[in-house]
């Protein structure tokens, strides 16, 4: 992956809480075998309403989604991240996230950043007033900046390092291959194993 240090973009305000991954991408769009091609499915049901934020021509090209608490709760489908990314969303800011989604997002370079409630409310208000309202998410400095303000955030140490360096997650773990092999030698022998030819 290309190294990623910061992103600046216009805000797409989504003033809803508990947005589940079934809303982000309904399951009928999750049947492809690829990691791309999911933009059509992004918020497919909500996009049917003309006044949905992604349909607002004044906000076309917006790339920082700001949402209410518990964003992307529910299903583990990584398709939710792929759909947001395919649409052109580079960062999501919310007071809290579904755990699995946040992991998935950072693994794909989608900056899912947790901010205090009051900060998210302020950003939503600012974006409501001005469709061209810009926000910068700075992964190096671990802060979000906008005209007249800034807010520090915390992010998973490993995910941050992988993104900043453009490193491959699995390659980093495989560098610990000897440690993993040593652990495996100490596992209890009665733990279950599977095999293609097994009966029962």
């Amino acid at each position: 992956m290309e190294p990623l240090t910061e992103h600046t973009g216009r805000v797409l305000p989504l003033r809803r809480s508990d947005v589940d991954t079934d809303q982000i991408i309904p399951s009928r769009f999750c049947r492809r075998l690829t990691k791309t091609g999911y933009a059509d499915g992004l918020f497919a049901r909500w996009r049917e309403a003309d006044d949905f934020v992604l349909n607002d021509p004044a906000r076309a090209g917006g790339s920082v989604l700001v949402a209410g608490p518990n964003f992307a709760t529910g299903s583990s489908r990584e398709h939710a991240v792929w759909a947001l990314r395919d649409w052109g969303i580079a960062a999501v800011l919310a007071p809290s996230f579904g755990d699995i989604f946040r992991r998935n997002a950072l693994k794909n370079g989608l900056l899912a950043v947790q901010l205090p409630d009051a900060v998210v409310s302020g950003l939503l208000d600012a974006a409501d007033r001005d469709p061209r309202f810009l926000v910068t998410v700075d992964l190096l400095a671990c802060e979000v900046r906008w005209d007249g303000g800034r807010q520090a955030f915390e992010v998973d140490v490993r995910a941050r390092r992988l993104l900043l360096d453009g490193q491959d997650d699995i390659a980093v773990t495989l560098a610990d291959g000897d440690r993993i092999a040593a652990y495996e030698r100490g596992r209890p022998h009665w733990l279950p194993v599977f095999g293609p030819a097994r009966a029962g």
């Binding site: 998935n104 699995i170 773990t173 993993i180």
Partner: peptide, 17 residues
């Protein structure tokens, strides 16, 4: 539960950070 990137990680390493 995990996403597909972690599925790949487990397939390759049998671990998760």
């Amino acid at each position: 539960g995990v996403g597909t990137s972690d599925v790949e990680h487990v397939l390759a390493t049998q671990t998760l950070p």
